[in-house]
């Protein structure tokens, strides 16, 4: 998607007034997003009694890193961090693989019942974790997977959102190339790669990764409490 670098044509005819309005709007956006973030970071460097004062302190004095030291020492932070890394890496690998494979089948291959299977995958988006957690916990316990990584990763490895996103990505590939390849007796994936579209296949993974993280967090917070 090289269009990112293209300048909209309407920019050529922008008046200075519109330009100023654009910068004013952008400044407001920056303030709304950045000020709370700044406040949170600043608070983390304050001593406890300086957090609850009036008028509020916009700069920590004295600044302290005690909160950070406590975070690392009062809980087994390295172990938690390692667990997060392992779970994230495993799930990311599983979800990207399964999502790409499913989306490929649902968009570029032709077989009976394709639309029905697509709908079955999508409907999984409507089932919240709070519904699945009890029954999955029971199953995991039966399998003897309590307190294991596979007990967390495997129930979460099915991909609905990623399949949805990747399928639409694949559907946008130029059909002519794929059809030409079919006539040559090649598979659609070979055509996509040969046509220089391999990069397009991978584009929306950023959004996918964030969504996956959200789901994990939603699930683990529901489970641990």
């Amino acid at each position: 998607m090289s269009t990112h670098l293209q300048v909209s044509q309407s920019d050529r005819h922008r008046t200075p007034l519109m330009s100023v309005a654009g910068y004013v709007a952008m400044t407001i956006v920056v303030l709304i997003i950045a000020v709370p973030l700044f406040w949170i970071v600043i608070t983390s460097f304050k001593e406890r009694q300086d957090i609850y004062v009036r008028p509020a302190q916009y700069w920590p004095s004295p600044a302290t890193t005690d909160n950070y030291r406590d975070t690392v020492t009062s809980i087994p932070f390295p172990a938690y961090f390692r667990n997060s890394l392992i779970i994230t890496a495993l799930l990311a690998a599983a979800k990207i693989t399964l999502g790409v494979l499913s989306a490929y089948a649902l968009s570029l291959l032709r077989f009976p019942g394709r639309n029905l299977i697509f709908l079955v995958v999508i409907a999984a988006l409507m089932v919240p974790n709070q519904i699945t957690v009890i029954s999955n916990y029971a199953l995991i316990a039966q399998l003897g997977w309590r307190n294991t990584f596979q007990g967390i990763v495997i129930p979460l490895a099915g991909v609905a959102f990623g399949t949805f996103l990747m399928r639409n990505q694949f559907l946008s590939l130029p059909h002519e190339i794929i059809e030409a390849a079919r006539l040559d007796g090649r598979r659609p994936d070979e055509a996509a790669v040969a046509g220089g579209h391999a990069d397009v296949l991978a584009d929306p993974r950023g959004v996918l990764a964030h969504h996956r993280r959200q789901q994990e967090e939603r699930n683990t917070s529901g489970r641990s409490s």
Partner: peptide, 11 residues
């Protein structure tokens, strides 16, 4: 693989 996981852990 994906359908099996979704069936087992969602449906």
């Amino acid at each position: 693989p994906n359908l099996a996981l979704l069936t087992l852990f969602v449906y």
